[in-house]
Design a protein around this nucleic acid. Structure first.
Lengths: 157, 157
DNA sequence: GTATAATAGTTTCGTTACTTAACTATTATC
DNA sequence: GATAATAGTTAAGTAACGAAACTATTATAC
């Protein structure tokens, strides 16, 4: 069993010294852009992103974003009030409510994304092709971490 | 000029579909661990991490974490109240205040980190050596993004 | 087929994390 | 030595959450 792999420890180590501060930086940029030029907060932006990714029920959104259902419900309130999102009941099971992007929401998201992508491009401008590929290649591996079940899945005999 | 590189666009694309949800997952795990088993919140944990990384002034911490100085000041209040951190004035310039980890703070951080690392190891257990290396290799490239100055640095003639 | 349980969403309430603006203390500058 | 700049804090307001309690709808049990 190659289980206490050195490689893995190193990946974890570097992950922790890199991702949190980077995420903080991105977050603060979005905050700046989204609140100054646009009409939303960072968190609302992220909810919009998830909605566009594939409209789902409130619970699904909460699960995807790893926050509580009330939190999604409240974010939806704010976004609906601003006209960026619509609540749509599902006819086959009336307990479910789905969120749909409105036209305005879609446009807003495009605008914020354009801004943010431009900013990232700037930040990446001195990276070599090799470095960019390194980033691209790492992402699928990181995604795998999310798919892993949380617990070791106790074997039933 | 190779400026609108395809590779770069792809890196950005994948980054956005990977990092935010992954970060959300990690965040929610830490919240669980830190508030259930320990005495702190997610954000306080992150502040402690920065303090350990190298004790610096309040402003430096704020800059490192990309949040406002008041936010750091308040986090420091909470952490000091709980005894995990100490405010230490600098003698050469009395405007500065630095944060130091107390013994308790250090132990707490170790404990939370142990928990979190174990959890990450779990989540990484099905990754191949190649995938782990991909993660390790991407991190320095991502760090570079943080070092870039925010603005294109207008050339002065 | 009603009673009971489970599930999706919401409301309420309290806590924490932030920000901006205004204020204090200290050091630099002219 | 007056003025400006800088580090930190305080104050006040907003947003993001979670937990618990509540409503509406669908599934299960008997």
């Amino acid at each position: 069993m190659p289980s206490s792999s050195r490689t893995r420890e190193q990946a974890i180590e570097r992950f922790w010294e890199t991702v949190p501060p980077l995420w903080g930086l991105i977050r603060s940029h979005i905050r700046e852009v989204a609140t100054a030029n646009f009409d939303i907060t960072v968190e609302q932006f992220h909810v919009l992103r998830f909605v566009r990714r594939g409209p789902g029920s409130m619970s699904q959104l909460a699960a995807a974003k790893n926050i509580s259902r009330p939190a999604i419900s409240q974010a939806a309130d704010a976004l609906e009030r601003k006209g960026y999102v619509r609540r749509v009941g599902r006819s086959d099971d009336r307990r479910y409510v789905e969120l749909e992007l409105t036209r305005a929401g879609n446009d807003l998201l495009d605008a914020v994304f354009d801004e943010t992508r431009a900013w990232m491009r700037q930040r990446m401008r001195s990276l070599s092709e090799t470095e960019l590929e390194a980033i691209t290649n790492a992402m699928p591996a990181l995604r795998k971490m999310m798919d892993e079940p949380a617990n070791p899945a106790v074997k039933k005999p």
